[in-house]
Design a protein around this nucleic acid. Sequence first.
DNA 1: CAAAACTGAATGAACGTTCATTTTGTTACA
DNA 2: TGTAACAAAATGAACGTTCATTCAGTTTTG
Lengths: 192, 192
Amino acid sequence: MRTTPKGQVKRDALVRATITLVNNNGFHATPMAQIAKLAGVSAGTIYRYFESKQDLINQVYMEVKGAFSASAFRDYVATSSVEGDFKQIWHNIAAFKLREVEEALFLSQCDNTPMIDEASRQEGLKHLRPLLDLWERGQAQGIIRPVSPYALYAFTIYPIAFLLNMQQRDHYEITPSRVAEVYHMAWNSIKA
Amino acid sequence: MRTTPKGQVKRDALVRATITLVNNNGFHATPMAQIAKLAGVSAGTIYRYFESKQDLINQVYMEVKGAFSASAFRDYVATSSVEGDFKQIWHNIAAFKLREVEEALFLSQCDNTPMIDEASRQEGLKHLRPLLDLWERGQAQGIIRPVSPYALYAFTIYPIAFLLNMQQRDHYEITPSRVAEVYHMAWNSIKA
DNA sequence: CAAAACTGAATGAACGTTCATTTTGTTACA
DNA sequence: TGTAACAAAATGAACGTTCATTCAGTTTTG
C-alpha cells in the first residue's frame, strides 16, 4: 500500500521548507538554494514542480489557505443559532492556528506584505464564504452589528494572528483558558 | 532664516522614499538604487546617512514609531475616567493612521515581518507605556477585562491596521461614522 | 532500455557597497 | 568684495557577491 503518491513527496518537502524559511527570513530573503537544501533536494528540482519562485509562493499560499479553510468549516452545518455557529467556526479557526502554527504564521505574513499577487489573494478570500454568509444571517436577525464584514473580520479573526505572533516571539502564551477569554472578546466586539 | 536644517533635506527624502517603496514592494524587493532614485539622490549618498540597508530600515522604523507614539499621546494627561482616557488615545491613534497612511502601512509591515531586528522592535514597544499604564489602571478598577495587554492590543489597536490595509486595497472605506463604530467595537471587546 | 526524474555546476542579471573624482559650500585673506 | 585654499557633500562607475534559473549529464523507474 502506498500512502503518499510518490510524485508528491519532494513537492511536499519543498512546500514545507518554503513555509519554514519564509517564516524565519521573509520571502525575498530566502534563496531558492536554501529551500532546496532544507527540502533535501537539488536546486534544479524545484523547477520540475514550480515555474518560478513567485509561482512557488503562490502555490504554497493557495494550499495553506485551502487547508485553513477546510479546518475552519470542518463539520460545519448551519443551525438556527447564529452565535453557536459562529462559536464553532471561530474555535475551528483558533484550533487550526494553534495546531498548525507554521502554516498560520505563513498566512499572516502573506496577508500583510506585497509578497502575494492580488489575484491569488482574491482567490484565497473566496474560501471564507460560509463565514460571510453566517455574518449576513446574524445581521439580518439583528444579532450581529450591521458593519462591513471586514470590520467583523478585523475584530474576530485578525486578533488571533496577532496573539500567535506574540506567542512566537515569547511575549505571550496561548493557553486553553485564554482561548475562551479571547473568544468572548471577539464575540463582544461584534454582537449587536 | 533657514527653516529646514540643510543637512537633513536629503536624509528626509531618503526616509520618505524608503517608506513608499517598502510599502509597495517590501523591504528585500526594493533596491538601494531605487530608493536613491526616488529620493533624487545618488546611490552612494545613502551611505553618508546610513551605515547599511538594514540600518536604514531600522532608523526609518524608529522615527516613524516615534511620530506614531507622539501622536498617540499628544495632549494626553490622565484623568479620573479610564474610559475617557482610552477613548482619547484610541482616537489619536486612529487619526494618525488615517492622516499618515504611508507611515501607518509601513509600521504594519514592519510589525508583521522579519524585516526589523528584535532589538529595534523592543525599543519601539517602550513608547506605548502610557497606554499600558492606563490599561492597568482600568483593570485595577474592574473596568477593563483582566487579560494580557497583548490581548487588549490585539482587539483595540491591531484591527485598525487591518482596516487600513483593506482600505489601501480598495475593499473598504474608512469614513468618520465608521471610525466611531469601530471604536465601540474596540471598547466592547475589552470592557469588563 | 527508454523515459522520467534528478543533479549541481554554469550563467548572467541584479544587488549592496565602495571609492576616486567632481561639485558645492565655507573660510581666509587681499 | 573678489578670489584662492580648503572641506564637506555628492556622484556614479566599478567591484565582488549573491541570486534565480538553466541545462548537459547522471541516476532512477517501470
